[in-house]
Computed example of a mutant assay.
Amino acid sequence: MRIFSENRPDINQGLKTRRFRVESLPRVTSETRWRTEAMRSYAQPLLLWFTRGQGRITVAGVTHGFGAHHAVFLPANTMHGYEMSGQVFGTAVYLPPDPSLNLPEEPVHLRFRDVAQQAELSVMIENIQAELKSDRPGKERAMLAHAGLLAVWLDRELEAGNRQDLHPDAARRLAAAYSAMVERDFKTGRTINYYAQQLGVTPTHLTRCCKIACGRSASALLADRVHFEARKLLAETRRPVKEIAGELGFNSAAYFTRAFQKHTGATPTAFRKHG
């Protein structure tokens, strides 16, 4: 179920409050698995709160396991995807891109064994959710205030040392740097050779480090990000295939179609019809 804040344009409020959103983690089927597993990002901060189940999450090119009572905070434009083993329950909290909140600038992975900590985070999320459902005066201020409390809570947990180190070695740091570049440039059609050159390493070394960090090659990460965007545009818009191909850096619609079919098992037209 999706709960949205008010969508009416408001010049004074800008994007601050209209981009609050709280969603239950989706029930994944074979047809929709790409929406969670493929590499993607959002233009706003995101907090994932897993309350049951387990799986693996790749954040900025580095894969870690997650389980019940794990929280993952992702700054805006952080490339990520997660695989769920069996039934996973949890909540995704999309926060406004408001610098005054002073949210962490780097991804954060937290694990909570203490019941009081688990309850504290759940209550903060429920407070934001309650304001989204309400029509009371001061709703926008209240949501920003609750988001501010969430930011303070994250800072305190980081100071307490509850985070997992996402980049413990040089290979994972390189994979993270590569992931950030892919997120910035994946629509340009640039090859792995370009990214490796920019990072000062060989394509072979870059791929070796990506496989250490997340079990996938550098080219697989890039293709996954490109084709997530392709599937999203095909599923959610009626834009012509040729236009989507051009936006994603392909020289022709025919080349895009071949690459898309190789990656997904369906042509763009077939995916749009059935996906």
Results as ranks from 00 to 15, higher is better:
34 W>F: 07
167 H>P: 02
144 L>N: 05
36 T>E: 01
274 H>N: 08
164 Q>P: 07
224 D>L: 13
108 V>C: 07
181 M>V: 01
255 Y>F: 06
242 K>P: 01
175 A>M: 07
29 T>Q: 15
15 L>V: 03
30 S>D: 12
127 N>F: 13
267 T>V: 05
103 L>F: 09
259 A>C: 12
128 I>S: 05
12 N>G: 14
36 T>D: 03
198 Q>F: 12
53 G>I: 03
264 T>N: 11
129 Q>F: 08
28 V>R: 07
204 T>W: 14
207 T>C: 08
216 R>F: 01
208 R>H: 04
78 T>H: 08
8 R>I: 15
16 K>L: 13
211 K>L: 11
120 E>V: 03
220 A>R: 05
274 H>D: 06
233 L>R: 08
222 L>I: 12
30 S>W: 08
230 A>K: 14
169 D>H: 11
168 P>A: 05
195 Y>M: 12
260 F>D: 10
6 E>Y: 00
212 I>M: 13
197 Q>N: 14
228 F>R: 04
163 R>G: 00
129 Q>P: 00
51 T>W: 07
108 V>Y: 00
28 V>L: 15
56 R>T: 15
43 A>E: 09
146 H>K: 02
238 R>W: 08
30 S>L: 11
218 A>V: 00
124 M>E: 11
48 L>K: 03
187 K>N: 14
148 G>M: 03
223 A>P: 04
143 M>V: 00
222 L>S: 00
255 Y>A: 10
9 P>H: 09
242 K>D: 13
217 S>K: 03
90 G>W: 08
216 R>M: 14
270 A>L: 14
218 A>K: 02
111 R>W: 13
81 G>V: 01
122 S>T: 15
26 P>H: 12
99 P>F: 07
23 E>D: 14
147 A>G: 05
108 V>E: 04
263 H>M: 13
4 F>V: 05
83 E>S: 09
107 P>H: 06
109 H>N: 00
187 K>T: 12
81 G>W: 00
18 R>M: 02
110 L>E: 08
169 D>K: 04
22 V>T: 14
240 P>S: 00
